[in-house]
Simulated assay, not measured.
Amino acid sequence: MSRPLAILSRVRLAALAAVAALALAACNGQGNDVSAKANQPLSPKMISLMSEKDMAPQNPILIRVFKEEAELEVWKAKNDGSYALLKTYPICRWSGELGPKVKIGDRQAPEGFYMITPGLMNPNSSYYLSINTGFPNAFDKSWGRTGEFLMIHGDCSSAGCYAMTDEQIAEIFALAREAFAGGQRAFQIQAMPFRMTPQNLARHRNNPNMAFWRNLKQGYDHFEVTKHEPKVNVCNRQYVFDAQLPPGQAFNPSAPCPAYTVAPEIASAVGAKERSDNLKVAELSSNTPLAPVRTGRDGGMNPVFLAKLNGEDNAPARMAYGQDNVPAFDPANVRPP
């Protein structure tokens, strides 16, 4: 066997071992019930959707979360290696205001770039199933931010997390499980305050978190223009993306950034997008009403679920996801935002 094939084989075996350990841990939790939840197969409809998009179940995934829109996107690598949107899930509940999580007890859901390994998948969660975001990451720690057990989970109830319905988290969990079984060692979660459009940036232009959000937008733009997972590092207490260092150099989250380069084709495309977006933000800022810095509400939920909670029938919101993409949930146990 050639060296590249041997390395690939070892990676796949390691991933399969991790997934097997995950299933074994589930069996050691609450018995067959937990194991069944963690090992639910992907539905024929999902398998068909992947096939239509030139994807396979074992291909890598990437997740994007948008607080203000209350949406979670699962992106998946096509067979050519580039990522495409697989499915958008309405978020049932998130807590806090727009902005990063700073300390334990602030009820803020995290914002930033997080890498999810098999060890962060929790089949024995008290919230049906859960995926730990890994907060705090190196960026968060460089700012002295504190918190733990910040999850994407089921049960539609949140205190600093992104809460889905049990049906949704079961499918998301299965998508991650299959990607790990296919050899992906970690997948990226990009957690954003909102979609990084010029319109949203203009609306929030006076928010004190804007410098942080501009830094997040750099990674958002890298993904938008390349459709590949951006490589993420931290230096000078900020994220840097797709950075290449000379031999012997390393990134230190709290120290000044060393001299690094970005592949010219990526730097050019990202720079062009940034310039175009900045021009649009400047144009829109003269007549776009400002969004409130604080809403006084504790988080939010997608209009699909908010309508159900209020006993309404939000037809436009249901049409946005398709009837089959709006799982049922019990509004009796959900506190409105």
Rank of each mutant, 00 (worst) to 15 (best):
A328P: 08
D33Q: 14
G99C: 04
H222W: 10
N333A: 00
P258Q: 05
N28I: 10
K103I: 11
D140K: 02
C27V: 08
F212M: 03
A307P: 01
K45N: 07
Y128W: 11
M50S: 08
T295I: 08
R64K: 11
A23I: 09
Q249Y: 11
S48P: 03
I131C: 03
P247D: 03
A15M: 02
Q30C: 13
S285W: 09
T226Y: 13
E171M: 13
G144W: 05
E283L: 08
M210K: 04
R237H: 11
L13K: 05
F241E: 02
N325A: 13
I91E: 10
C92I: 01
T295Y: 01
K227R: 14
L42Y: 04
I116V: 13
A77S: 14
D330E: 12
G31F: 09
A176H: 13
A186C: 04
S51N: 11
A109D: 07
A243Q: 09
L8T: 12
R214E: 15
A211R: 11
L22S: 10
L8G: 01
L129C: 08
M164Q: 14
D33M: 12
M1I: 02
N124P: 07
E274V: 15
I266F: 07
I7G: 00
P123Y: 05
L98G: 02
E283V: 08
A36N: 14
A18P: 01
K76L: 05
C27N: 06
A267I: 15
Y127W: 03
K273M: 14
V270S: 10
L72S: 05
W143C: 07
K87Q: 12
N209K: 06
N59H: 11
S130E: 06
N310A: 07
P316Q: 02
L85P: 00
K87P: 01
R203W: 05
M50L: 15
K78H: 13
P246Y: 00
N207Q: 06
T295W: 04
A38Q: 08
Q40K: 15
R203H: 00
L279S: 14
I169A: 10
G144D: 12
K78S: 12
K67F: 00
K67D: 03
T88D: 07
A186M: 07
G311I: 01
W143Y: 03
S142W: 03
M164Y: 08
I169V: 12
N32Q: 10
F194V: 00
A250I: 05
G219P: 03
L306K: 01
S2P: 13
S254V: 10
Y162I: 00
Q30G: 15
W94L: 01
P336W: 06
G160L: 03
N236H: 15
W94D: 03
K67V: 06
A328M: 09
M46Y: 11
S286K: 13
G29I: 00
A267S: 13
N314D: 12
E68Q: 01
W213M: 01
Y239D: 02
R12C: 06
R64A: 12
G271Y: 10
S276P: 11
P100V: 01
Q30H: 15
V240L: 09
V232K: 00
P303D: 04
K280G: 07
D166L: 11
I47Q: 10
P110D: 01
A255V: 00
D298A: 01
L290E: 09
G219M: 04
M301F: 05
G112H: 10
K273N: 15
L279W: 14
